[in-house]
């Protein structure tokens, strides 16, 4: 629709929008995160939802304890190998459309604990991550920024076409295989469908 016409109409009290715009406006402003804290970063996540930073301004103050009612998983903290199957299971139980924010260095890559034998080196080995937040811990502002980034992503999705939202597509997996506890490590150590080792710049 022509922008000028739309502005003209709104002066007369007639608001026009697309169905897609309305749909995304609703989805973007009522993202309910899963109440799910793993480590230190979770404290900053709680701080974000408290009075000073007030995540409620973005429509995301409703932390849901049950994955069945949540849209967004904020992986806040270190994912250990013992916890990784649980995290994947929780993700599998969330209904579509679902999004993942990896909060903090640990959730991205293992962070300071990367050398640990029981630390998963990044949750994207098992799950598709939409937004990564670096930091140890990221400040609440960083989480808010990640949240706005996610909102922009949701806004850019359309109802039809190749850029459809996750729940309208049949080609995206909504469940991922849960890794098994092995004798020395998780089995498999990563999900090759979602993750491949990054190309090393100096690889030779």
């Amino acid at each position: 629709m022509d922008e000028g016409l739309r502005g003209e109409l709104s002066k007369h009290g007639v608001f026009t929008t697309t169905l897609e715009g309305l749909h995304n406006w609703g989805r973007r402003n009522s993202v309910w995160p899963l109440q799910f804290g793993l480590a230190c970063c979770a404290i900053e996540m709680i701080a974000t939802s408290m009075a000073r930073y007030d995540l409620a301004r973005f429509g995301a103050e409703v932390f849901r304890p049950s994955p069945r009612q949540a849209d967004l998983m904020i992986v806040a903290g270190t994912v250990t190998k013992k916890m990784a199957p649980q995290v994947v299971r929780l993700y599998n139980q969330m209904p579509e459309p679902k999004y993942v924010i990896a909060m903090g260095a640990c959730a991205i890559s293992g962070g300071p604990f990367k050398q640990g034998y029981n630390v998963l080196k990044g949750i994207d080995r098992y799950l598709p991550v939409d937004v990564h937040i670096p930091g140890c811990p990221p400040r609440p502002e960083a989480l808010i920024h990640a949240f706005m980034t996610l909102q922009r992503r949701i806004d850019a999705q359309s109802l039809t076409g190749p850029n459809r939202a996750r729940h309208l597509r049949s080609d995206v997996d909504s469940e991922f295989p849960v890794p098994q506890f092995g004798a020395h490590d998780l089995h498999p150590p990563s999900n090759p469908k979602t993750w491949t080792p990054p190309q090393s710049v100096r690889s030779q």
Binding site: T80, F113, Q115, G116, Y117, N118
Partner: peptide
């Protein structure tokens, strides 16, 4: 054990001072 981050093992492989930031965590 769901948050067993191997603090002790990492600290035994690094210098004394380098463990200080790990104690924060």
């Amino acid at each position: 054990g769901y948050l067993h981050r191997n603090h002790e093992k990492i600290a035994e492989n690094t210098s004394y001072l380098a463990s200080m930031p790990y104690t924060d965590r």
